[in-house]
Simulated assay, not measured.
Amino acid sequence: MNLPNIITLSRIFMIPVMIFCYYYWPADNAHYIAAWVFMIASFTDFFDGYLARKLNQSTPLGAFLDPVADKLSVIIALSLLIEHYSTILLTIPAIVIIGREVVISALREWMAELGQSAEVAVSYIGKVKTFLQMSSITMVMGFAEDHWMGILGMIGLYAAAILTVWSMVQYLRAAWPQLTAK
């Protein structure tokens, strides 16, 4: 166990804290506190990878846990928002993002079995999408839908959904020869 792995695990442990804050924080600013927890967890996503590379402490456990922590935190945060707002305007980009995560996870696993995981490695667009999606979720979670930050977050969520589809098309295009092989 090294520092980058501990940071990644802390991101997973922040998920129940975010849920608790979102539903049970005993104040009017519960969603704001939950958004801060999500934002801190999101920040650790960039920090743990940086440290793993900088300290030469990349491990198989970290390589496995990092995408799991990302997907769990994003999917659970989006689920909280879908339940809270109960509107098609939020549900559409959330479903696009969640659906893409499932498709790309399955694609990466399958390509790894074929020894072709480099074909579907994380791209620059994927990194931009992740940043936009995490910052947008933070804004939507922390601010009401009629607050300018909440509105900006919704716009960002739609932009993240567009990048999500774009990156998924790129990954599928890269894997297409293997997907259509006889």
Results as ranks from 00 to 15, higher is better:
P4M: 08
I6V: 15
I7M: 13
I7Y: 12
T8I: 02
T8P: 10
T8F: 01
L9Y: 14
S10K: 06
S10A: 14
R11G: 06
I12C: 09
I12Y: 05
I12W: 09
I12T: 01
I15L: 15
V17W: 13
M18N: 08
M18A: 11
I19S: 03
F20T: 11
Y23I: 01
Y23M: 01
W25E: 02
P26N: 00
A27P: 00
H31N: 14
A34T: 03
A35S: 13
V37R: 06
V37F: 01
F38T: 07
F38H: 10
M39R: 03
F43V: 13
F43E: 00
F43L: 13
D45L: 06
F46L: 13
F46E: 10
F47L: 15
Y50T: 09
A52M: 05
A52F: 06
A52I: 03
R53D: 04
R53H: 06
L55N: 12
Q57V: 00
P60S: 06
L61A: 12
L61N: 05
A63M: 12
V68D: 00
A69N: 09
K71L: 08
K71V: 11
L72W: 10
L72A: 14
S73G: 02
V74L: 01
A77K: 01
L78D: 03
L80Q: 04
L81Y: 03
L81Q: 02
L81S: 03
L81C: 07
E83S: 13
H84Q: 13
S86W: 09
T87G: 10
I88Q: 02
L89R: 09
L89G: 11
L90I: 15
I92K: 00
P93D: 01
V96M: 14
V96Y: 00
G99C: 05
G99E: 09
E101N: 10
V102K: 06
L107A: 05
W110V: 04
M111A: 06
M111S: 07
E113I: 02
E113M: 08
L114K: 14
G115V: 08
Q116K: 15
S117G: 09
A118H: 08
E119L: 15
A121I: 13
A121N: 09
V122C: 05
I125M: 15
I125E: 04
G126S: 05
G126L: 08
K129T: 12
F131P: 08
L132W: 04
M134P: 11
M134L: 12
S135E: 01
S136P: 09
S136N: 04
T138A: 13
M139L: 15
M141V: 01
A144R: 08
E145V: 07
L152S: 15
L152R: 10
G153C: 07
G153M: 03
M154Y: 10
M154R: 06
G156E: 03
L157D: 04
A159F: 14
A159V: 15
T164W: 00
W166M: 10
S167M: 01
M168S: 14
V169N: 00
V169D: 00
Q170N: 11
Q170V: 12
A174I: 12
W176V: 11
W176F: 13
P177A: 07
L179H: 12
